[in-house]
């Protein structure tokens, strides 16, 4: 229920020629831009001088086939990611790459950049199981969500753990020892989804906070 002491019905606005949207706060604008495909986000740079650099500090970067160029190759998609990251300034909360990235050195460079910008939610897709997932993902200490598709994942013995990781989704080649070690270093893990290419004899999981577990693979 709302009652207004002095009834005022119509919602009058100032003269319609004024552009206020360009002056919305940065954090408000970020909320809007993260809901757009990356292509539309970048296209806002041409609107006016005020808009030119608004896109470069967007917190979530999602590159999927729908929002990139239709019919473009994976090399061209990777070029787009390179372009966006080259101009990006400020923290990046979420980075999703849903197309198979052909070059491991590209992924490595992106992940190193993301690890320095506080990445929390990371989704990476490599081109093939034969490609190694760059070990730079283990630098991303603030991760809460990690999803890896394809590629071979090796866990360095010096790995100190993802102390904030809540969700882990792996669809990779990884040894049973490596996976047991990785999970044992993620004390807060709540959701675990594994689709494993290798044959396992035994899988040991130590995850005291686990609430959801899905496994697809062969023993």
């Amino acid at each position: 229920m709302v009652t207004m002491k002095k009834k005022k019905q119509a919602c009058q606005s100032a003269p319609g020629s004024v552009d206020l949207i360009s002056d919305l706060f940065e954090d408000v604008l970020n909320l809007i831009l993260v809901r757009l495909p990356i292509r539309d986000v970048v296209r806002t740079s041409i609107l006016s001088k005020k808009w030119r650099d608004k896109w470069i500090s967007i917190s979530d970067l999602v590159f999927d086939n729908d929002c990139l160029m239709e019919g473009a190759s994976e090399m061209e998609h990777a070029h787009v990611v390179n372009q966006v990251l080259k101009h990006h300034v400020g923290p990046i909360c979420k980075f999703s790459c849903m197309f198979g990235v052909p070059s491991c050195s590209d992924i490595d460079r992106w992940v190193v950049f993301l690890s320095r910008n506080g990445i929390k939610k990371l989704t990476l897709t490599t081109k093939a199981y034969a490609n190694d997932v760059p070990s730079s993902i283990f630098y991303c200490q603030e991760l809460t969500h990690l999803e890896l598709f394809y590629g071979t994942l090796k866990v360095p013995s010096t790995f100190k753990g993802f102390h904030n990781l809540l969700l882990l989704n792996l669809c990779v080649k990884i040894s049973e020892d490596a996976i047991a070690f990785l999970i044992s270093k993620c004390p807060l893990l709540e959701r675990l989804k594994l689709k494993i290419e290798d044959f396992y004899q035994c899988l040991n999981i130590h995850a005291p906070n686990l609430r959801y577990f899905e496994f697809s693979g062969q023993f």
């Binding site: 319609g16 552009d19 360009s22 757009l36 539309d40 296209r43 609107l47």
Partner: peptide, 16 residues
Amino acid sequence: LKGKSPRLIRELLKIK
């Protein structure tokens, strides 16, 4: 904003 041309967005939102 989604899918609109920059020209149309400028016109509708009065962006100079």
